[in-house]
Simulated assay, not measured.
Amino acid sequence: MKPFAFEDLPNILGTLVMRVESIERMVKQIRDNKPPEDFDPGLMTILEASKLVNLSVATIYSKVCRKEMPANKKGKKLYFIRSELLEWIKSGRIKTMSEMQREADQRFNK
Protein backbone atom coordinates (compact mmCIF):
# COMPACT_ATOMS: atom_id res chain seq x y z
CA MET A 1 0.00 0.00 0.00
CA LYS A 2 1.49 3.32 -1.04
CA PRO A 3 1.52 6.30 1.32
CA PHE A 4 -1.07 8.96 0.59
CA ALA A 5 -0.48 12.67 0.33
CA PHE A 6 -2.56 15.20 2.21
CA GLU A 7 -4.11 16.32 -1.08
CA ASP A 8 -5.44 12.76 -1.64
CA LEU A 9 -7.53 12.77 1.56
CA PRO A 10 -10.75 14.20 0.06
CA ASN A 11 -10.81 11.53 -2.66
CA ILE A 12 -9.97 8.77 -0.17
CA LEU A 13 -12.64 9.97 2.26
CA GLY A 14 -15.23 10.16 -0.53
CA THR A 15 -14.41 6.58 -1.59
CA LEU A 16 -14.66 5.35 1.99
CA VAL A 17 -18.04 7.04 2.51
CA MET A 18 -19.39 5.47 -0.69
CA ARG A 19 -18.17 2.03 0.37
CA VAL A 20 -19.68 2.34 3.86
CA GLU A 21 -23.01 3.42 2.36
CA SER A 22 -22.90 0.45 -0.01
CA ILE A 23 -22.22 -1.92 2.88
CA GLU A 24 -25.08 -0.39 4.89
CA ARG A 25 -27.47 -0.92 1.94
CA MET A 26 -26.40 -4.57 1.63
CA VAL A 27 -26.82 -5.18 5.37
CA LYS A 28 -30.28 -3.58 5.28
CA GLN A 29 -31.29 -5.80 2.33
CA ILE A 30 -30.08 -8.90 4.13
CA ARG A 31 -31.80 -7.87 7.36
CA ASP A 32 -35.08 -7.07 5.61
CA ASN A 33 -35.20 -10.30 3.61
CA LYS A 34 -37.08 -12.93 5.55
CA PRO A 35 -36.20 -16.58 5.04
CA PRO A 36 -38.77 -18.71 3.16
CA GLU A 37 -41.52 -20.24 5.29
CA ASP A 38 -40.20 -23.74 4.72
CA PHE A 39 -36.67 -22.71 5.71
CA ASP A 40 -35.35 -24.81 8.59
CA PRO A 41 -32.38 -23.21 10.34
CA GLY A 42 -31.45 -26.62 11.76
CA LEU A 43 -31.16 -28.22 8.32
CA MET A 44 -27.60 -28.36 7.01
CA THR A 45 -25.85 -29.38 3.81
CA ILE A 46 -22.88 -31.71 3.88
CA LEU A 47 -20.48 -28.75 3.65
CA GLU A 48 -22.08 -27.06 6.65
CA ALA A 49 -22.07 -30.34 8.57
CA SER A 50 -18.42 -30.82 7.66
CA LYS A 51 -17.57 -27.47 9.25
CA LEU A 52 -19.67 -28.20 12.34
CA VAL A 53 -18.16 -31.60 13.11
CA ASN A 54 -14.71 -30.71 11.73
CA LEU A 55 -14.54 -33.72 9.40
CA SER A 56 -13.86 -33.85 5.68
CA VAL A 57 -16.75 -34.38 3.29
CA ALA A 58 -15.29 -37.74 2.27
CA THR A 59 -15.16 -38.88 5.91
CA ILE A 60 -18.77 -37.84 6.40
CA TYR A 61 -19.85 -39.81 3.32
CA SER A 62 -18.01 -42.85 4.71
CA LYS A 63 -19.59 -42.54 8.15
CA VAL A 64 -23.08 -42.12 6.68
CA CYS A 65 -22.55 -45.12 4.40
CA ARG A 66 -21.53 -47.25 7.42
CA LYS A 67 -24.53 -45.82 9.36
CA GLU A 68 -22.23 -44.32 11.98
CA MET A 69 -23.56 -40.79 11.58
CA PRO A 70 -27.17 -39.52 11.42
CA ALA A 71 -28.20 -38.14 8.02
CA ASN A 72 -31.20 -37.63 5.77
CA LYS A 73 -31.14 -38.34 2.07
CA LYS A 74 -33.37 -36.73 -0.54
CA GLY A 75 -32.55 -37.80 -4.04
CA LYS A 76 -28.78 -37.81 -4.32
CA LYS A 77 -28.22 -35.16 -1.65
CA LEU A 78 -27.48 -35.64 2.02
CA TYR A 79 -28.91 -33.31 4.64
CA PHE A 80 -28.17 -33.12 8.34
CA ILE A 81 -30.11 -31.80 11.28
CA ARG A 82 -27.95 -29.66 13.55
CA SER A 83 -29.43 -30.96 16.81
CA GLU A 84 -28.92 -34.59 15.70
CA LEU A 85 -25.28 -33.90 14.85
CA LEU A 86 -24.71 -32.25 18.22
CA GLU A 87 -26.30 -35.25 19.98
CA TRP A 88 -24.13 -37.58 17.89
CA ILE A 89 -21.03 -35.69 19.00
CA LYS A 90 -22.13 -35.77 22.65
CA SER A 91 -22.82 -39.50 22.49
CA GLY A 92 -19.11 -40.13 21.96
CA ARG A 93 -18.11 -38.42 25.19
CA ILE A 94 -15.34 -40.14 27.13
CA LYS A 95 -16.00 -40.31 30.86
CA THR A 96 -13.49 -39.05 33.39
CA MET A 97 -11.96 -41.34 36.01
CA SER A 98 -14.03 -39.70 38.75
CA GLU A 99 -17.27 -40.28 36.78
CA MET A 100 -16.38 -43.94 36.24
CA GLN A 101 -15.52 -44.29 39.95
CA ARG A 102 -18.87 -42.74 40.93
CA GLU A 103 -20.74 -45.13 38.64
CA ALA A 104 -18.85 -48.10 40.05
CA ASP A 105 -19.60 -46.98 43.62
CA GLN A 106 -23.29 -46.57 42.79
CA ARG A 107 -23.47 -50.07 41.29
CA PHE A 108 -21.77 -51.70 44.26
CA ASN A 109 -23.90 -49.79 46.78
CA LYS A 110 -27.14 -51.12 45.25
Rank of each mutant, 00 (worst) to 15 (best):
D105V: 15
K63A: 08
N54H: 09
V57E: 11
N72C: 09
L13N: 12
R93N: 07
E87M: 14
E99F: 08
D8C: 11
R19F: 10
K110Q: 12
P41F: 08
A49S: 06
P3E: 10
S98A: 12
R19G: 07
K28T: 12
E21M: 13
N54P: 03
V17I: 08
M44E: 11
V53Q: 07
F6A: 06
V53I: 15
R107L: 15
R19W: 11
S62I: 08
I94R: 09
I94F: 04
L9F: 06
F39W: 15
I94T: 07
K77T: 10
N109K: 04
T59E: 03
Q29A: 15
L55W: 14
L85E: 07
S50A: 13
R93D: 05
M69P: 00
I23S: 04
N109T: 03
I94E: 03
A104I: 13
S50I: 04
V64C: 07
C65A: 14
V20P: 02
K76N: 11
I94G: 01
V17A: 14
L16E: 06
K90D: 07
R25D: 11
E24G: 00
S22Q: 14
P35D: 13
I23H: 07
F39C: 02
A58Q: 10
L55I: 07
D40P: 06
N11V: 10
E7F: 12
Q106K: 13
V20N: 03
F6Q: 09
I23R: 13
I30A: 15
C65I: 09
D32V: 13
P36W: 15
K63G: 03
L86N: 01
N109E: 01
I89Q: 12
L47M: 04
K95G: 00
C65M: 11
E7V: 15
N109A: 09
V64R: 02
Q106L: 12
S83V: 07
P10I: 05
F80R: 05
R25T: 10
Y79W: 15
I12P: 05
K67E: 00
V17N: 04
N33G: 08
N72K: 15
N11F: 13
P3H: 04
A58N: 08
D8N: 13
T59N: 08
E21G: 05
D38G: 05
E103D: 14
S62R: 15
S62Y: 11
Y61K: 10
L78C: 05
Y79M: 10
D105W: 11
M97F: 06
M18Q: 12
E21A: 15
L86K: 11
S91P: 05
T59A: 10
L86C: 01
K2S: 09
M1C: 07
R31H: 02
E103N: 13
R107G: 01
G14T: 13
